[in-house]
């Protein structure tokens, strides 16, 4: 099991049971702390609770207002992002057509056997169905990745972003630890790409992300909700993440958003995303990368047998 090449932690939601301070101390991740909270959108500056919890000062990268200012002054940048938005919608629509069919087939096949047993008749078909899902997810992720590289590559050269990117690079060069808060994961990821946060971060700087922040740090961002207001609630790949936390799929709010008691759904999600470690990050949970791999406090792994377990290694099948 690979872990991150730098000190890194992925945390669950920090609203009700904040553990950030404890995790930072445990990691030995010291200041100066630099914060990305663009996922909070226009509420980016509302950091009162974080101030109180952390107990020491931090500096915000102010990605939200920087981006707003760039959009207002640079119509071409705005249209570049509008175009990406439209193309993302088209790619998602195409992806969902196949995803619904592949998931339906996989669910039906898995319904003919128990997740924890190898039925000699059905199991090969389940394997094929899960493989088809993985292939589809990979394909979609690659297409979104290509679009991202095109868009953010072009954006990086925009004059409207130049001074902001330079200031951010300077701030990150002096950062003791980077903190990435939750919120809207798409907006968070986009703002971090526009301002080159991952590229500017020194290789050894510790990073801690929670909720959407944890998702953005991984290699692939999975969107999930078993019972949204409308629709089937089919978990889907948004696209690549920043790749700072390889080998993990982060599921913040898993107990609220997923039916973790449904072994069939759990097993399917784990098998679909294998060999990545699929981790439920609920309130107070943490997953910390160390020299020996990932260690969990509270964080639980979704196993291919349909269980949700504290042991991170056992079910990497």
């Amino acid at each position: 099991m690979t872990a991150a090449p730098r000190p890194l932690a992925l945390l669950g939601p920090q609203h009700d049971r904040p553990t950030l301070r404890e995790v930072l101390d445990r990691m030995g991740a010291s200041g100066p702390y630099v914060l990305v909270s663009a996922g909070w959108e226009e509420r980016e500056s509302e950091t009162g609770r974080l101030d109180a919890h952390l107990g020491e000062s931090f500096r915000s990268l102010d990605l939200w207002p920087r981006c707003e200012a760039a959009f207002e002054s640079d119509a071409d940048l705005r249209h570049l992002m509008f175009d990406r938005h439209d193309r993302m919608k088209e790619l998602s629509a195409l992806y969902r057509i196949r995803l619904a069919a592949e998931l339906s087939a996989a669910r039906e096949l898995m319904g003919r056997t128990r997740p924890d047993e190898q039925d000699p008749l059905v199991a090969p078909s389940v394997d094929l169905a899960c493989g088809a899902l993985r292939e589809l997810d990979d394909h979609h992720c690659a297409r979104v990745g290509a679009l991202n590289e095109e868009t953010f590559g072009e954006a990086a050269g925009r004059e409207s972003l130049r001074s902001g990117r330079a200031e951010i690079a300077e701030t990150l060069a002096g950062a003791g630890t980077l903190l990435v808060a939750g919120g809207h994961v798409g907006i968070l990821y986009n703002r971090m790409r526009l301002f080159g946060v991952a590229e500017s971060l020194p290789a050894a700087t510790p990073v801690v992300g929670w909720s959407a922040g944890a998702m953005a740090l991984t290699e692939r961002i999975l969107l999930f909700h078993d019972s949204p207001p409308q629709g089937p609630g089919d978990a889907e790949i948004l696209g690549p993440g920043l790749g700072l936390a390889p080998g993990v799929v982060a599921l913040p709010h898993a107990s609220r958003r997923l039916d973790l008691a449904d072994r069939g759904r759990v097993a399917l999600l784990a098998r679909r995303l294998a060999p990545e470690l699929v981790v439920a990050l609920d309130d107070g949970d943490s997953l910390v990368a160390g020299s020996g791999g990932w260690s969990a406090r509270g964080a639980r792994r979704l196993s291919t047998a349909g269980d949700v377990v504290g042991d991170l290694v056992g079910g990497q099948a």
Binding site: H15, G183, L238
Partner: peptide
């Protein structure tokens, strides 16, 4: 018009 709830993880 399904909303961005799908994308928000506070």
């Amino acid at each position: 018009f399904p909303g961005p709830l799908w994308m928000v993880y506070e």
